[in-house]
Amino acid sequence: EKIKAVVIDGYPARSMWVQEFTNFFIPEMDKKLAETGNYEMEWQESYGGSIVKPKGVLEGIKLGLGDIGIVTTIFHSSKLPSQAIAAVTPFVSPDARAVAKAVDEIAREFPTMQNEFAEENQVYLATGVVLDTYQVFSVDPVTSPKDLEGSKVAGAGMNLRYLEGIEGAAGVRGGLTDFYNMLQTGLVEQALLWPEAAATFKISEVAPHMLAADLGAVNSKTVTVNKDYWDSLPDEVKEALQEVAILYRDHVANVAMERASESRDAYVAAGGTITEATAEDRAAWAAAMPNIAREWAEGLDAKGEPGTEMLKAYLGKLEAAGFTGVRDWTAE
């Protein structure tokens, strides 16, 4: 039996997670279903704005314009607040694999994340972590977070709040594509981004100094399925999707880590210098920040969701995987 599936993302087909969906997720699904031969998928992949824009995937899946979608969750702080779990806990784990696994398990063990997607008429499938860790890229030599004092720093979304503890530092909002220009013209002295993005946008040319502050990996993608479509699927296909989703989660995180290490090498080869931030400096930066993790957990608690428990469980999972934060975000 043939089953049609329209896969959507607003990002272009060349984006890493989209590419891996085409080259990994889909072949794995086909392989799995071929084992019994009962069902065969007929894929229609529509990426890069042909049906929705990056911010429109969530609504597109909700409204049935696509069957399976890769939602970029950082655009939806209002509808998907619990997805910010990794973004509000900086300085814990710079390992995409550990963060992907921990967030995914939280999504399965607590009802909150799945409920948020259910509200949007869709079924949670898997978490994608596509960046290893935010770092500080600087025009002038930088050896410690103190060098950020009084300067302008390009950032986006939640990471602008990481700057709140640094004396006189002003966050300047911008899209990834603008960072090169912002650094080059002196509009900002530093930018927060991850090594792979730095390599893609040739940041080494304008900001040859990187402070490895290891702010941490962040989950930003979630694979979801339209609820009505999901209900129409036979159990065999549902199970296959769920199994492949976990493989995809780990695969994407692995690719992210490989890319990250290649990108660091490329940065150095292109003349960039990397300075490791000391443990004290990282601890001092974390301590100076407002506790955005608690803000986040209390926000969820107030809505009757187990925010505080999720936060504890999440950090516990990372600790079990060998990653202990420099600040206890659950304290206070």
Partner: peptide, 16 residues
């Protein structure tokens, strides 16, 4: 009813 917003909480948000 949901008072949904866009933007980044803690930075700047506007209702939909």
């Amino acid at each position: 009813e949901s008072k949904d917003y866009f933007g980044v909480p803690g930075v700047f948000t506007a209702p939909w």
